[in-house]
Design a protein around this nucleic acid. Structure first.
Length: 586
RNA sequence: CGGGACGUGGCUCAGCCUGGUAGAGCACUCGCUUGGGGUGCGAGGGGUCGGCAGUUCAAAUCUGCCCGUCCCGACCA
């Protein structure tokens, strides 16, 4: 049993000035964490206790499907060079040199190290499948750490890796993780949703994120209230309502129109008295690609889409296999598109025949296909075209989906209006494929004695994000309450007056009884005013409180449920039973 | 990386514009008081005013550079 009077729980009456989100304010106020630097935090007693509870659940569930390792946090550059990620990870990777000048990095993730073990040790299909996991500190030099523990530069991740003989095996490993993750997040008391996701810099095919809805989140999730469709906006698609095309004017061919000073979509729509959906917008980028040797190249890309739509850069990056994008500058616009900003258009552009070919890549969003008589820039200052029909008047390298879904558009599965909401990513599972096993040379013999490359999956859980999203989900003006499974203590026994010699033994007795019954108990025996202890108890996330006070003389105490702020009087003899019932302990 | 804000006891902030002995509340220590929602009173301790340089008789205050932290942005041409 822990006595509050002996503990270091530095609660604060006020939140630090730079805390914005609830979890950040309360983690600091409740004495869970303290900041050391931007995106770098120390976990104090209560914080570490909660983290340990979370890790315990993760470990217990992961042990059902995998084996726990602990890999180094510091890696030689060599393995990252072999996978090609030494260069593609860019500035997000912490790099350092040893005394001999050799390059090392701090691990952001551990595909390379796991694959290194696999390639050195796995020889036969008989050794497959394997699921290896670890719970370990990761380092990422985030461009912008923020929101307390939500986006940090050092954090704890449970990362798991599967090695299978073939795609069918990977499907199984993936599904195992899907099931285990659902169990883990459920046990942690999170209200989560699994969504389709982009696989991003990690590479791979199928990808699923586990998200918790909260405005503190940085991801946007598109979901259908009617059916089960849910996807990250980086991946989401939708059905659009039909747009009524304009009637052709004149001979129906593209007609040059003088549009002096009309350089924005809004101005164009106004000038022509059309809707923005009847305009074609051009967004021109330079896209950076990197070879496996780290050579960088910038290639021009022009994206054409409906005037009222927005480019989704994640989709675009994936499509052109680029690591970075930046807007074209004026001289680049002139060189590749031969037009000035504000008057860019697709007509007459010379473009690459296929992705990967030399020259300007012209991308048309799907929403332009089948449209007629649209308005677009003429690549000439102060001129636009009307009567422009995609496919007839201009062509493209590829027609794809590169736009952002907007709330209210139709669900791709059932057509119902979609919702868009912010969420925090707490877990991510994806099928990596052969990216690492191939590039790093992992090979096993199959039953026919033929050498094959194992197929890999990768599965992550952000430990601190489970804590932060739980707080975001459950807080009020006075503090927060955690699910019993991940709270630092399940119940706090508050002796309202620690100077009352009659009260103290009763409180201690109750605390001991609760502990004997299997509860994780904190005894608040501090010589403080009752109000102070109540305020602290409300602040620090413990879901239940037993008040030992005035009524103790009559053999009764109060059981307070933090989440509902409800209180019930119970006989001292019945405290264990009452808490079991209230907490729903089997 | 672009833009903005901030940096003064442990925390939240005032003082800076208009240069002249460094302040408040909370927290902490001691004494008394109080004892069911951050008691009340009194007495104390604690600050290189982020750093360096400059201007000045004199810099928390003005100027420059640097460092740190936070926020917004890094798609619409």
């Amino acid at each position: 049993m822990h006595r509050w009077s002996k503990l270091f729980v530095p609660t604060l009456r006020e939140a630090p000035a730079d805390a914005e989100v609830a979890s950040h304010k309360f983690l600091v106020r409740s004495g869970y964490i303290r900041q050391l630097g931007a995106g770098i935090y120390s976990y104090l007693f209560l914080g570490q206790r909660s983290i340990n509870k979370i890790i315990g659940i993760v470990r217990e569930e992961m042990d059902k499907i995998g084996q726990e390792f602990l890999l180094p946090a510091i890696h030689p550059a060599e393995i990252w060079e072999q996978s090609g990620r030494w260069t593609t990870m860019g500035q997000n990777m912490f790099r350092l040199q040893d005394r001999k000048g050799a390059w090392l990095c701090l691990g952001m993730t551990h595909e390379e190290v796991m694959t290194d073990i696999a390639r050195k040790e796995l020889r036969s299909y008989k050794q497959l499948p394997q699921i290896w996991y670890q719970i370990q500190t990761k380092f990422r030099d985030e461009p912008r750490p923020k929101s307390g523990l939500l986006r940090v530069r050092q954090f704890i991740m449970k990362d798991a890796y599967s090695f299978d003989l073939d795609a069918a095996g990977l499907d199984k490993s993936f599904d195992l993780h899907d099931q285990v993750y659902r169990t883990i997040f459920t046990r942690c008391g999170l209200d989560f949703v699994a969504v389709e996701a982009d696989s991003g810099a990690m590479g791979g095919s199928q990808s699923q994120e586990f998200m918790v809805y909260t405005d503190a989140g940085e991801d946007l999730i598109v979901s259908c209230p009617k059916c089960h469709y849910a996807a990250n906006i980086e991946k989401a698609i939708s059905r659009l309502s039909p747009v009524i095309d304009l009637a052709p004017t004149g001979d129906g061919k593209p007609e040059l129109v003088s549009t002096p000073g009309i350089a924005t979509i809004a101005d164009v729509a106004k000038f022509f008295s059309i809707s923005e959906a009847q305009d074609i917008k051009c967004v021109a980028y330079m896209a950076e690609t990197k070879s496996s040797k780290g050579e960088s190249a910038w290639n021009p890309v022009a994206v054409f889409l409906r005037g009222d739509h927005q480019v989704n850069e994640t989709k675009l990056l994936g499509l052109v296999k680029a690591v970075d994008l930046r807007p074209m500058q004026a001289e680049e616009l002139e060189r590749y598109i031969h037009g000035p900003a504000g008057f860019l258009g697709p007509i007459g552009l010379q473009h690459a025949k296929a992705l990967g070919d030399e020259g300007l890549v012209v991308i048309a969003d799907h929403a332009l296909e089948g449209r007629e008589n649209m308005v677009c820039g003429a690549n000439k200052l102060d001129y636009h075209y009307r009567n422009v029909t995609p496919g007839r008047d201009f062509t493209w390298t590829v027609a794809v989906d590169v736009r952002n879904v907007v709330e209210g558009e139709g669900c791709p599965q059932c057509g119902s209006p979609l919702k868009v909401a912010k969420a925090v990513e707490v877990g991510h599972i994806f099928k990596l494929g052969y990216k690492y096993t191939e590039s790093m040379g992992a090979r096993v013999l199959d039953p026919n004695g033929k050498e094959v490359t194992p197929i890999m999956g990768s599965y992550g859980i952000g430990i601190e994000r489970i804590l932060t999203s739980a707080i975001e989900q459950s807080h009020d003006a006075n503090g927060f309450w955690l699910p019993r499974s991940i709270a630092p203590f399940e119940v706090v026994v508050t002796i309202t007056n620690a100077t009352d010699a009659n009260l103290v033994p009763i409180g201690e007795r109750i605390a001991k009884d609760l502990e004997a019954a299997g509860f994780d108990v904190l005894l608040d025996d501090r010589d403080e005013r009752a109000g102070v202890k109540f305020k602290d108890a409300d602040l620090v996330g413990i879901p239940y409180r037993i008040n030992v006070g005035k009524k103790a003389a009559e053999g009764r105490v109060e059981l307070v449920t933090r989440s509902t702020a409800t209180s019930e009087d119970v006989a001292i003899a019945d405290v264990v039973t009452a808490l079991r019932n209230t907490a729903g302990v089997a």
